[in-house]
Amino acid sequence: MAGVKIDEGQPLIELRDIYKIYQMGDEEVRASDGVSFTINRGEFVAIVGKSGSGKSTLMNIIGALDVPTSGEYYLGGEDVSDMTDDELAEIRNKMIGFIFQQYNLLPKLNLLENVELPLLYAGVPAQERKERALASLDRVGLKEKWKNMPSQLSGGQQQRVSIARALAGDPSLILADEPTGALDSRTSREVLNFLKKLNDEGNTIVMITHDNSIAMEAKRVIRVHDGKINFDGDVKDYAAIL
């Protein structure tokens, strides 16, 4: 990626003793209570946990949407843990492709404009932006519909657009937050298959979910409970303890 040095030998994600502590009145809430793990390039990891387990906090930190109270977070070898707002924005823009549960497409922009957004913020010139966005839409099979508005699409299609948007910037990490949470089982399967295909093509994917059956689609599972990791291992081992 332009502007960001990537040392291929290093793990893509490295969390060292991450704490995220919120003050709720008099009470101290430890949303992340000493979390450490590494994720290498090409992995497909599911972070699983119940609501309130601290998985969203982890997702925010991994996604450079938030910084930890203490601990270090290296993304592609860069220390993200004490970056400013604008530096985080740049990291998100260049290194992370988000896929949200609610798709989070902008309703007043057409598909192409939606997919172009990360490229726009990266300062890609208009012509190249359009070409790359169209190519990205093509990957999810929606190139023909580029002029449509998000509201004209089904939920599954909208999620594919959001995947296209995540892919457009050619990020090092694809971060999916409950990607199937708003979809029926058939379209969920489509999306999961697509994520698997992306992983087979070499993309690193981190998927946050509360649903064990979804987590089983990944290659590695990290389970969070009360802000701590209580399982980290291969999906087969995870299946064994369920």
Partner: peptide, 16 residues
Amino acid sequence: TREIGIRKSLGAKRGT
């Protein structure tokens, strides 16, 4: 607010 959140998550800086 949500639009702003989406834009920021996609890399829009404060200035933008």
